[in-house]
Every structure is written in structure tokens, then in C-alpha cells.
């Protein structure tokens, strides 16, 4: 089976994306690579994007049928300086021009926005799906508050993340255009089996 290699800004983004693919029945083997550091972020991703792509391409499991998805938050509300985002986009474009099957997948404004509209997560946390999830300035904080209100482990903890991921239904694209776009990108990727 072909692989999709997620180069993700952080591990929570990867885990959410993997679960959504699984729940949507998208058949692909998933691998992950993160930037260095205990709390990787967009700046490290931008600085290391070429090294991370090179690492995937040099991995002995890499095959020409595989593809790469660079997954990160769009952060338009919290990051006025767009240099890091431009660097990532330029790197993806450059590698794409060289023939590498690579897609940049962005969540607006954070990958947690996809969960604010997810029926499984919302039902578990006794919340109504948020129809404006993609426009919320701080989806991660919102989700964390929802967890606390529902007396569940905080989303920002390892345990909370795991619980939330376990409840994902994968249907957040009903209200999240950024997830809809991401799924379209991923479904059309050459490594995805119909």
C-alpha cells in the first residue's frame, strides 16, 4: 500500500489528520515527521522544511507511489508576520516543480477548527457543531475550554488529545471549508487508493 508522509507542524495536527482520513475510509498508510524540539512550531517547520522533505525522500520505505502532505495551521489571527508561511509554501512549490508529489495542507485558523464542527467530538463534549469554525481566532483554546466545561481531560494535555482524537467522526467538512479543501487535496493525491 502506498504511503502518505505527513510533515506536520506538531504531533496533535498529525493525529487529528490521521484519524479523519481513517474515519473517511481513505485507504493509505500514514507516516509522520515533525520539526525538532519538544514543542515544535511553525518557525521550526519553516526552517527545517527542506531537511524534513529530504529525510522522507531518503527513507528506505519511500516509494514513487508515495506522496507528502505538509500540514500546518494558517494562524492568520495570531501571526501577522507571514515569512514562515511563505517559506513553507515556496519550498512546497519548488519541490512540486521538481516532480515531487507534495501538497501543502493548511487548517484555518488551526487544525482544531476542524473538530469544532465534528459531530463525534461535539456530541462527546455536549456542544453544538460550530458553523463558523474556520473563522474562530483560537480554535485550540475553544476546544480546550469545551473539554474543561464537559469535565474531560484538557485538550492541551496528552490524555485530552487522545480522548478527543478517539471521538472524531471525520465529518467536520460540513462546516469547515479548510477541511473540505484539505480532503479534496488528499483524496486526489496520487498515493490515495480509490
Amino acid at each position: 500500500m502506498a504511503r502518505i508522509w505527513f510533515i506536520a507542524e506538531d504531533d496533535s495536527g498529525f493525529q487529528i489528520a490521521r484519524r479523519i482520513l481513517e474515519k473517511r475510509g481513505i485507504r493509505v498508510q500514514v507516516e509522520r515527521l515533525l520539526p525538532t524540539g519538544s514543542n515544535p512550531n511553525i518557525f521550526q517547520l519553516a526552517k527545517q522544511i527542506d531537511r524534513l522533505i529530504a529525510t522522507v525522500r531518503q527513507d528506505k520505505r519511500w516509494s514513487p507511489q508515495d506522496c507528502i502532505a505538509v500540514l500546518h495551521d494558517w494562524d492568520i489571527h495570531k501571526q501577522p508576520d507571514r515569512t514562515a508561511y511563505d517559506t513553507i509554501r515556496a519550498a512546497c512549490e519548488r519541490h512540486k516543480q521538481e516532480g515531487l508529489p507534495i501538497k501543502e495542507v493548511t487548517a484555518k485558523d488551526e487544525v482544531e477548527a476542524w473538530l469544532l464542527a465534528d459531530s463525534g467530538v461535539c456530541a462527546w463534549l455536549a456542544q453544538k457543531p460550530d458553523k463558523k469554525c474556520d473563522t474562530r481566532p483560537k480554535p485550540k483554546d475553544m476546544l480546550d475550554n469545551w473539554c474543561k466545561d464537559a469535565r474531560k481531560p484538557p485538550y492541551k494535555s496528552e490524555k485530552g488529545l487522545k480522548e478527543v482524537v478517539n471521538h472524531i467522526a471525520g465529518d467536520g467538512d460540513r462546516y469547515s471549508p479548510s477541511l473540505r479543501e484539505a480532503l479534496t487535496h488528499l483524496k486526489n493525491a496520487p498515493c490515495i487508493q480509490p
Partner: peptide, 11 residues
């Protein structure tokens, strides 16, 4: 980078 730092990237 140190090898331990790279280890944490899951390379």
C-alpha cells in the same frame, strides 16, 4: 542538530 534532536522528529 544533535542526533537526539533529530530522533524526536521521528526521522
Amino acid at each position: 542538530y544533535g542526533l537526539g534532536e533529530v530522533w524526536k522528529t521521528r526521522a
